[in-house]
């Protein structure tokens, strides 16, 4: 397993894109104004990935069950290859991710990072925090009423 701290930049952006909210991603992509030409290397296809887990959380691996995943690969006119791997059955999202992945390898990466990836990272963090804060409010504070020995 890779932890967030030892991800390469490409691993990091692909991970952020894969887990982004589809509607938000499309919105940001359209606003960014990029409309690159491309050719498919692999048209979007829906498939399954078998998720694994470990016995007792830490022991030997076992197969838990599948999840749906959509993937595609494309190439820009300059030959840069972009990959899209996203959870669920969303061919448009996979295409957008692959396009952003390809463009992120070029000279305009800093623009894309600012207008697309930064808001997605922020949203991802916020999504997580909202639930964590609600969970925190349900944490039990124990207090002792009366102790029998007094």
């Amino acid at each position: 397993m890779t932890t967030a701290s030892d991800q390469t930049p490409r691993q990091a952006w692909l991970s952020v894109l894969a887990t982004a909210d589809a509607a938000q991603l499309q919105g940001l992509w359209h606003e960014s104004g990029f409309t690159p030409e491309f050719d498919w290397l692999r048209a979007p296809e829906v498939g399954a990935v078998m998720t694994r887990a470990r016995m007792g959380g830490t022991g030997a691996p076992f197969n838990l069950g599948e999840m749906t995943v959509t993937r595609c690969a494309l190439t820009l006119p300059d030959g840069t290859v972009g990959h899209g791997y996203v959870q669920g059955r969303d061919k448009v999202k996979a295409e957008t991710v692959a396009l952003i992945d390809a463009l992120m390898q070029g000279s305009r990466a800093h623009i894309l990072d600012e207008v697309i990836l930064a808001p997605l990272r922020k949203a991802r963090h916020a999504r997580k925090r909202v639930r964590a804060e609600k969970a925190a409010a349900t944490k039990v504070d124990f207090f002792t009423l009366v102790r029998g020995e007094d």
Partner: peptide, 23 residues
């Protein structure tokens, strides 16, 4: 339905120690 899906592969074992716990 799942029998119609091509299998893309296996994930790494998920790390439940990193779970964002609701409960």
């Amino acid at each position: 339905y799942r029998t119609t899906l091509p299998r893309f592969g296996y994930s790494y074992p998920v790390d439940t120690g990193r779970m964002t716990c609701d409960r």
